[in-house]
Design a protein around this nucleic acid. Sequence first.
DNA 1: CATAGAATTGGAATAATTCTAAACTGGACT
DNA 2: AGTCCAGTTTAGAATTATTCCAATTCTATG
Lengths: 139, 139
Amino acid sequence: MNSKFQNISVEEIERRLKDAGVNPTTQRIAIFKYILCDADHPTADQIKSWADKNFPKVSLATIYNTLNVLVDAGLLRELNLPESDSVVYDKTLSEHHHFLDQQTGHLIDIEGDQIRVELKLKRQLKISEMDILLRGTQN
Amino acid sequence: MNSKFQNISVEEIERRLKDAGVNPTTQRIAIFKYILCDADHPTADQIKSWADKNFPKVSLATIYNTLNVLVDAGLLRELNLPESDSVVYDKTLSEHHHFLDQQTGHLIDIEGDQIRVELKLKRQLKISEMDILLRGTQN
DNA sequence: CATAGAATTGGAATAATTCTAAACTGGACT
DNA sequence: AGTCCAGTTTAGAATTATTCCAATTCTATG
Ligand SMILES: [Mn+2]
Ligand SMILES: [Mn+2]
Ligand SMILES: [Zn+2]
Ligand SMILES: [Zn+2]
């Protein structure tokens, strides 16, 4: 386990798209596969750079369209981190949080079971979601 | 306690600016006082709107300049929330987190002592900061 | 093959923020 | 009071991420 990058066949990618109600076009398959297998929290721009090297032509509009389609279908999540002006896309769908290495800029997934949060709220709040961003350095 | 808005004299504002090494100009005093006394997590645009009603002329560039000066001097913090394209400015300097009311869009400060976090990290990470954003509704 | 709906495209539009270079201010020194 | 100057403010242009738009191209189905 624990290899950050996995190998998923094109057929499997197609199946996942279809199951989510997304028409599996060439561009969508390529972009989704790239994000699932070869990328780590990429930005639209990073995806565009990769696409430019690996495809005859993919427009930036299509990158954004596709990302929005994938997010809306629940196949990706978008993260808006304070330190960056651009959204990063997250393939991990399970509840999890993030650690930002302040030296390298790397973003690391922290699974939900690694953080226990105890709320002693003064107000009566019904919490439906919680985003935690840790910052620091790695030994 | 607990009134969200407090009254601070212009002299006190000036003193705080000077103490932080910030030249207390007319515009800086006005903007800082507005944020400290009358605003709640405002955006640059909201500050501009208020300024337009209360001053002969304050340029948007000055709003941004001032906010950056105040942030750099440690007198304000800037928050970059996922749900908004614009930065909001936070007068609360103590360690705290935020609750976003998904119905009203209101942002509420959650003091640090209301959240206990227990980390069981698999990796060796040295955490220096932690941002927590809660989302939900209020009873 | 025809066709219609969906997807893709290039370029324009939008919006938050920063940059630039010129004009202004207010205190320090005559 | 008058001059000077560093620091501040200003208008408007520039930048950048993302969305919008209208035209073109695909693709699945009949
Ligand atoms: Mn979206
Ligand atoms: Mn800043
Ligand atoms: Zn993640
Ligand atoms: Zn706050």
